[in-house]
Structure formats: C-alpha cells, structure tokens
Amino acid sequence: MNKNSLHSGSSARWQMPFISNRRLFALLKYFFLILVSIPFIFPFWWMFTTSLKPISDVFGQLTLLPETWLFSNYIEVFQFQPFALHYFNSVYIAVLVTVLTLIMSALAGYGFARIRFRGNSLFFVMLLTSLMMPIEVTIIPNFYLIQSLGWTDTHLPLIIPSVLGPQGIVATFMMRQFFLSFPDELEDAARIDGLGRFGILWRIALPLARPILGTVAILTFLGSWNSFLEPLIYLSNQNLFTIPLSLRSYTDSYGYPLWNIQLAATVLSVVPMLIVFIVAQRQIVNSFARSGLKG
C-alpha cells in the first residue's frame, strides 16, 4: 500500500500536524490487531477445512484448503453416535440452567439488596464465603450426594447444583450489586401505587435490570455449555451425553481419535453459537457495559 492511497481517504477532521502521527498510530493498531488475531481465527479455519478432508489427508503437512471437498464426514458425525440428541441435551440443559438461575438469582439478589429482614447480612456473608469456591472443591461429597439421590445418569446433577451452587451464588451476588444502586424513589412510588414486593420486582425492578440479567444469562449459559467435569463424572449412558463429552467420544473402540469426523462434529458444535454471537454481538457487549459489572 502506498502512502498516497492512504491519504486519499483522510477526512477533514484530521488536522494538519496530527495527521501523520494519528495515522501511523492507527496503522500500528491495525497491524497489532491482525497479528494478535491470527491464533484466535486460525483454529477455526483449520477446524473447518480439516473437517472436509478424507482421513488420509488429515495427517502430515498442513494445507490451507482441502484438495477434495468431502462432506461425508458430516454425515458420519450423526451415524457414529446420536449427535443431534447430544446437541439437544446441551441446549436444553443450558437454557434450563440459565432460566432457573435468572429466576433464582433475581429473587435472592433483590431480597438481599432491597428488603430488610433479620439475618440479611449474616446470610449474605455466608454466601460470600463460597463465592470464590469452585465446584471442584466439593466434587467428591457432591458425587456421594448425587449418588444417594439416585441422580447419576440423569441430567439433574448438571442442572440443580449449577443453579443453586457456586455459579448461582455468583449470579445472586451480581444481581444484588445491581439492585443496590437502585433509586429508592422508584420503589416508593410503586408502593404508593399499591404494588407488593412481587409486583415491584416484576414490574419495576426486573425491566430496569435487563443489562445485568443479560450478563448473568450469557455467563450462565456459557458456564453450562462448557461444563465438562460434571457430565464426565455423572453421565455414563451415551444417550444422555452433552456436546463436550460427545466431541471426545469420536474415537474407535480402542480410544484412537477419528480426527476428521471429530472435527466435523466440532465445527457443528461451534457454528450455531457463532451465528448467535454475530447477530447479537452489540447487545451482548452493551449488556456487559450497562450491567455495572466492575467488581
């Protein structure tokens, strides 16, 4: 690119002595961004192209494009194991966990932030102590608990403890912080209009809490979607598998990966999320920005 063509696009806003500096800075920025984005974007390109290769072309030297485009890998994804069912499992579990977490954390967050009752701060401090505690700490006793409830080989241990356990507590904490900064006047006005607590929460508080609800929803959904240890421990029946377990099961009966099929499945697991993200990208970022999430 030559210098002239760069200048031809300059707008009037950029005044004399700054032009070159600013442009240089911008160029430098672009250069950095492109460089840094390579390791983020390349795996997707590679994943996609390899999923179209026959197994004999998967190994050895890396090629940027498959020599033959083979879509049969994508058919085998579904023949090898019930991938569509695994997909459904992952989606419904993540949606259910997200919805239940939103309900639970909105109630609890609002209760802690806006209602005075005996023990409020004591209960909240109790919750706080486990805010930093990942589920991995209690995986052994939780396993015994789940087993004694007869929940192994069901989806319940992926749903209930996610909603009520540490992840749920983080959600409650975030909701509480948001509701704390809520103006008293709004609530008072609502009370004068004769609204009860549920009414205030439903009609006044929640509509205003959309950004934080969005943020909690995104984080919860991703948490459930990514969950690996719990399904690994609790699920044996292949029909109950979620996507992460499913992906790793594309192996022959001796545990050797069937790379091209595995990668085709990986692509299928990624694409819908990418589309959702690209469509909703602005809302997602804005909801983080307006959630007041800052610690």
């Binding site: 639970m104 954390s105 109630l107 609890a108 609002y110 209760g111 802690f112 209602i115 005075r116 009752f117 005996r118 409020n120 209960f123 109790m126 919750l127 486990s130 505690m133 700490v137 209690t138 052994i140 006793p141 939780n142 015994y144 608990l145 209930i160 403890p161 909603v163 009520l164 356990g165 540490p166 749920g168 507590i169 409650t172 009860g196 607590r197 549920f198 929460l201």
Partner: peptide, 30 residues
C-alpha cells in the same frame, strides 16, 4: 416484608446449604 425477604432468598439459601455448605463440611469430614 420480612417474610417476603425470606421467601426471596429461600431457594438460594436451601441450595447453598445442600450443595455448598453441606458438601464443604462433608469434604472436611471425608
């Protein structure tokens, strides 16, 4: 209002006792 408060936080607190505090005590015992 207090009752509402307890009602609102009840699911979270029950879950906390069942899936966090209980197992945390249990892990020490185990």
């Amino acid at each position: 209002d207090e009752i509402y408060g307890y009602l609102f936080i009840a699911p979270q607190m029950i879950g906390f006792l069942l899936f966090v505090l209980g197992p945390l005590i249990a892990v020490f015992v185990f």
